[in-house]
Design a protein around this nucleic acid. Structure first.
Lengths: 221, 221
DNA sequence: GAATAACTGGTACGAACGTACCAGTCTGGA
DNA sequence: TCCAGACTGGTACGTTCGTACCAGTTATTC
């Protein structure tokens, strides 16, 4: 993904391994975190291409060289940011869904589908852009094998979470039905995020509740 | 998407509108097409970031300035390439599906799902990368309003084609069921293309045939 | 055949980029 | 107290980029 290799590589300028994972000192850890947060912010705002060493450093209020000190390369930083975004995304989904379902009177398909849509769709422009960035990174994994394990783990964890949440809501879902439901949810979510059409949310709820209805009848409630 | 605006813009260097849509002369049309094809190739091979004026010109065997002569900007070129890729993709899907279905003995869910998977999934590495590029551009539409109409039209045409093909295969599909089926197909296709797991195709066939089964029972065959 | 527009191709500018480099300062363990 | 290693921050290199520019050649129109 990068090219300029203009000077001789020097791996250890005095003993350190260039771009370690865990800084030894507290201040170093704070700095690395700040860079990571800056990376996530920039990824969210402008996607992949807006994440440059300079932009990240400026956003974090740190000198340019800090980025190459704490991360082996730009790719390394982006990968770490992706990882963090996935974690946060899954946690947020779980939280949204359980909070929504907990206050439900009945668990007929319709309100559960609503809870799912609320949990999976962005609620404001910033969140929309975050989801966009997440999918951009996911797609990038199709070209960059280094990102692939992360992409797979995102899918797996999404499916596991969906299965768990459905059972929590009283649906006798199996991995098979979750596969269909999850894929459909992904497809609809991407469509909503990208195309920004009127009634997209309502339409997604409609479609998802049909899918839940299908689960309830075929899996035998 | 671009920034460097270093000199004063000059719109009409002698009468021409910078970057017209249809060259007036035959040779010009051929050159524009060559640039477009080069753009599609580069998009396929390396995605978005590999498409630079210089790369396109070199691939097309033309001087650098040809790119700015025939396209208003890099974005303009990319948009035109996206348009072309969508057209070709839809045509290929239709062709694959009908060819496959035509030689089917029965139209039970399983073989039809197979035909769908064959029509929607890439068959070699080049095709896989082409699909990757298509989705990258689609996602880009989430950030760039200029691309959005194209993204919407892709979705709409996909759904219309799916509906048509299902009916061709003898399935009494409605727009509603196509919406679920199409979203699921998109989700599964992206997953397959990006994650490159073993048995992905078979798993997709499995899932799609369950969806078709469902269509057949609920829509009443 | 002359005038006008379409097109060509080489070049230049200014900006941004990834990352290497290095002389220094700070910090924690012996 | 000392010193090795962690960290800092400023700078520099070489590359690539988008696109403007312009003196030419070629085609079309009157």
């Amino acid at each position: 993904m990068t090219k300029p290799r203009t000077r001789i590589q020097r791996n250890s300028p005095g003993g350190k391994i260039a771009g370690m994972r865990q800084p030894a000192q507290e201040r170093g850890r704070r700095r690395r975190d700040a860079l990571l947060d800056a990376g996530v912010e920039l990824l969210t705002e402008g996607g992949f291409t807006k994440v440059s060493h300079r932009a990240v450093a400026e956003r974090a209020g740190l000198p340019l060289a800090a980025t190459t000190y704490y991360f082996r390369s730009r790719d390394d930083l982006v990968t770490a940011a992706f990882e963090q975004m996935v974690d946060r995304d899954l946690a947020a989904t779980r939280e949204h869904f359980t909070a929504h379902v907990a206050q439900l009177a009945d668990t007929t398909p319709r309100p559960v589908a609503e809870a799912l849509a609320v949990a999976l769709l962005p609620h404001d422009e910033t969140e929309r852009r975050r989801h966009l960035a997440l999918w951009e990174l996911y797609l990038q994994a199709g070209r960059d094998p280094a990102l692939r394990p992360l992409a797979r783990s995102w899918t797996d964890r999404c499916r596991a979470t969906t299965l768990e949440l459905l059972r929590f809501a009283g649906y006798p879902a199996t991995p098979d039905s979750v596969r269909l439901l999850g894929a459909a949810a992904d497809g609809l979510a991407i469509e909503t995020i990208v195309e920004d059409r009127p009634n997209a949310v309502q339409s997604m709820v409609e479609t998802m509740s049909r899918a839940l209805e299908w689960i309830r009848t075929t899996e035998g409630a």
